[in-house]
Nucleic acid binder design. Sequence first.
DNA 1: ACATGATATAGATCACCTCTATGGCTATTG
DNA 2: CAATAGCCATAGAGGTGATCTATATCATGT
Lengths: 296, 296
Amino acid sequence: MSMMNMEWYRIFLHTARVGNLTRAAQELHITQPSVSYAIKQLEEALGVKLFDRLSKGVALTSEGRTLLDYVEKSFTLLDNGEKQIASLRNYASGELRIGASGPIIKHLLLTPLDELRSQHPNVRIRLFQGNTADIRTRLVEGQIDLGFVHLPYVDPELQIKPLTAIQGCFVVGPAYKELARQPITPADLNKLPLLFLSRGSHTRQFIERWFAEQGIAVEVDMELNSSEMLVELARHGYGAAYVTRSFVQQELRDEALFELTTTAPIPERFIGVATRSSASLSLIADHYMGLLSATF
Amino acid sequence: MSMMNMEWYRIFLHTARVGNLTRAAQELHITQPSVSYAIKQLEEALGVKLFDRLSKGVALTSEGRTLLDYVEKSFTLLDNGEKQIASLRNYASGELRIGASGPIIKHLLLTPLDELRSQHPNVRIRLFQGNTADIRTRLVEGQIDLGFVHLPYVDPELQIKPLTAIQGCFVVGPAYKELARQPITPADLNKLPLLFLSRGSHTRQFIERWFAEQGIAVEVDMELNSSEMLVELARHGYGAAYVTRSFVQQELRDEALFELTTTAPIPERFIGVATRSSASLSLIADHYMGLLSATF
DNA sequence: ACATGATATAGATCACCTCTATGGCTATTG
DNA sequence: CAATAGCCATAGAGGTGATCTATATCATGT
């Protein structure tokens, strides 16, 4: 329970370096008596003489030199801590830990993430892929700052911010262009070669459930791990790919792909960002949330 | 140029540990509003939120946790520094560095040194042997705290405290016992086998000068590095040894040795302790000086 | 709705840091 | 050797800001 005052130590440190109360005072922008007083206080509190008063200034005593070692190291640490906080505040360091529940989600988070990375290149970005249960666990354990989940999702521990809707659709290449003229029934759709994401993905489960609801036992022809590959194969006429519409916006405009309208509508899915309700967001996570909101 | 206040950090540290402003306040023996205020000040100074205020207390934010690492380490260092100073003050640590100009001197400093060591066993004692010039150099360079020198000795850089006089004398073993009956002339002394310390020692120079002043070119029969060996050989009848009288007090009383009185008196030599005049003594050195004064 | 246990805020008080002014000491200089 | 300059210590006044008391506010559980 020491009664020391940080100012005393700061003054001690500076005085020890310049060896002259008057000059130390000038550089600390205080008066010489203040320095004299502070050092006297410190000496009395510690019970040892820290400086010899010489005619040309002051010089550390043996005990003062011992103390200086500790004080210098201690202040360096504290300075580093403050610098670290400052750099966190400027997003000039730190890390952003994101969990995402499926490959599609990457297309939602990547745009604002790119922006973040270009603005603040020293922020380390950690991306964890996992299903919704994994994300929940990591969130409540504080291993990630925020996680992308499919809505609806309710959890007392988590706070959910709805982000955007995504609309899945079937697309085909120019070879099947004619089919896009009018709505197609799920049954007819099933007669086409179907290109889906791999079994186990949320998207795959969703579209299979949709087929099932239409009374169709779906037959999958090709299953791939990435939406990009689905799109590529669809363009080359391998069949109809089920992808997020926003993901192929450009190709649809360029008429490199054509959307098949289904007679039964494919419902929207909603995506949200989950954060732990008890803890507050780190500065970077908060910043990224802002970018997300701006994007959607 | 940080504007932080050590008290803020101390309060931050304690609050982070207990996670509760009210309890932190109790343990710091201040009021809860003070803690609240201090943390608010620190947060504003750093520009980041350090704690999440929960219903059950407070919890560190991500940034707060980052800061805590630094503050903990920094405070540990400062605490250790203060503990170190405290232990120096209690002579529970530290070192005492002594320079001694000749083997005889050891018999002067050892008694108080033994006392110091038994009272404060954790003080490390460093003993440097060297001639007066070595001691001077080491003193002004701050390598030793104090040095024993033969007086008179004047040096503007050093402060000399006279300690005691030592009286040299010639001693012989029982074989030469009869010679001790009456004073002996230097010339007759020179006819005996003479046992001296090695050439180069201050003592040797002193006694050779004394012989020279008596007009005698001294002939040395044996020269040895330690007074102990001189005494041993004298006891066995090898001749007359020149030693410090106080060093053979016991043997003279036991009549294991006999002192030869010289017709011309052998002057006393005076011993003093030298310290650097500009720097102040370390606490331990000062304490030892006290013991020295008490002994002589 | 109420009691409990927590933090935040307001305003008064006062400790103590900082200031100005000055004195004393030690070297340096004409 | 007196004079000057540079440096630290001390005294006393003044003001800043930390701490206090009292109270508000808010969340939680009964």
